[in-house]
Structures are given as structure tokens and as C-alpha cells.
């Protein structure tokens, strides 16, 4: 039912880019935290702006500013707006030239130090981590709403249906009126089926999320 709608993964173009941006964003947030003396920000949005501004400045210094803007790998167009000041012209960024097969082989094992980076982002609530969290919440909420919506549809239609359609209302099965059998017995398997779908899919969503977070 909702099987094809997994976690929308914020994927990076290249492994290197991803790792670099993660590190840069973290460096920014660390600075942020230090400056604010460890108090929480007034919300992820503001944090995000600060982060990206600082990481952009960092990027300007070490020459990888294009990948350092956390916005460049954020899905759903919810990227915090970069408000970096205009910067002096830069030499073009360095690009690794390699055979796709080599890239694929490299990407199957994480780069040293990149493991659990997103988990770290999540824990520190960087804008990137926030995007991951939002995507998980959206997936789970969609699933829950779908299941409960199906339940609501069944329970919303049944009372009227059973009372107004004469052929259903007045027929009996083995001496018992059909509406009694429907409300008293047949609704329960529907509830159980919905619960089964929900519980399987929710577990899958979480596994996918954990997988995603640990692989990136």
C-alpha cells in the first residue's frame, strides 16, 4: 500500500561532496554552539541560516565552498536560504576523475570517518539533521494517516450502509441479521488487517531510515 513510498533520501552527488559538506556544516554548528554558550537556538530555521553562512565562509577559505553549502544536497527544496556575502572569484573546484565502476566500488564502503555522520547531524540538530527528521516524520505520518483514514472510511460508511440498503438491512444469515454479523464480527478482521499493514510498514520505514542514516 505505502510500500513504494520509502524515506526520501537526501542523497549527495558524490561521496566526497557529501562527507565534506557534512563536516563543514558540523564545523559551523559547533562554532555556533560555542558562541551561544550551549543554549539552544530559537528554532532550527535560525540555526540553519547561521550554519550555512558560516560554512560558506569556511568554504571560502578552504576552497570547497560549492559542496560546503548544506543547501546543495538538501531535498524537497526546503534548503535554508544562503545569505553569504558576495565572494571573490575562485579557481574551479577540484573534481575526482575516475571510472564509474571505481566510484561505485568506493561508495559501497564508507570513507574513513564518515560513518554515523548523519546520526551526528541528527543528534546535533543541524539543518541537515532536521531535514532527515522531517522526512522520517512525514513518511510515518503519511502511513498512519492512510491506515486511520481507511479505518475511518470503513467505520464512516458502514452505519449508513447497513441502515439504508434494505437488502443488507433485512437479510439474515443462519438466523442472525446480517448487520449484526457485520458489526459484531466482520469489522474486527478489517481492523486487524489494517494494524498488520501499519505495523509492518512502520517497521520497514524505520529500518530504511536507520539504514540511510548509517550508510550516508
Amino acid at each position: 500500500m505505502a510500500g513504494d513510498r520509502g524515506i526520501s533520501a537526501p542523497r549527495s552527488g558524490t561521496r566526497k561532496g557529501g562527507a565534506a559538506s557534512g563536516r563543514a556544516a558540523r564545523a559551523g554548528s559547533r562554532k555556533n554552539g560555542a558562541r551561544k554558550g550551549g543554549t539552544p537556538g530559537d528554532g532550527a530555521q535560525e540555526d540553519g541560516r547561521n550554519d550555512s553562512r558560516e560554512s560558506a565562509r569556511n568554504g571560502g577559505r578552504d576552497g570547497s565552498q560549492r559542496t560546503a553549502q548544506s543547501g546543495s544536497r538538501v531535498p524537497h527544496g526546503r534548503a535554508p536560504q544562503t545569505t553569504a556575502p558576495p565572494e571573490p572569484p575562485e579557481p574551479p573546484p577540484r573534481v575526482t576523475v575516475a571510472h564509474p565502476r571505481t566510484l561505485a566500488a568506493r561508495s559501497s564502503q564508507p570513507l574513513p570517518g564518515s560513518r554515523a555522520l548523519v546520526a551526528d547531524d541528527l543528534g546535533r540538530q543541524t539543518p541537515l539533521g532536521d531535514v532527515y527528521l522531517r522526512s522520517l516524520m512525514r513518511t510515518q505520518l503519511r502511513l498512519a494517516a492512510l491506515v486511520v483514514g481507511a479505518l475511518g472510511a470503513v467505520l464512516g460508511v458502514l452505519p449508513v450502509l447497513l441502515a439504508t440498503v434494505p437488502s443488507v438491512r433485512d437479510s439474515t444469515l443462519a438466523g442472525v441479521p446480517v448487520p449484526w454479523l457485520v458489526i459484531g464480527v466482520a469489522v474486527h478482521p478489517v481492523i486487524l488487517a489494517l494494524a498488520w499493514v501499519y505495523q509492518r510498514q512502520a517497521r520497514k520505514n524505520e529500518a530504511e531510515f536507520a539504514d540511510l542514516v548509517e550508510r550516508s
Partner: peptide
């Protein structure tokens, strides 16, 4: 909106298997 909202939601929704680092304090 309380400042800890994002943190509270992270705690509610992130799977336990992740072992997320908790912000101190």
C-alpha cells in the same frame, strides 16, 4: 513555540537502533 521542540520530536521519532548522541544538558 518551545525552543526544545526539534529535540523533543527527534527523541519521539528516531528509531532506537541509531544510538543518537544526546545533546548534553
Amino acid at each position: 513555540v518551545p525552543s526544545g521542540t526539534a529535540h523533543a520530536l527527534l527523541r519521539l521519532h528516531a528509531p532506537e537502533s541509531l544510538n543518537l548522541p544526546r545533546r548534553p544538558g
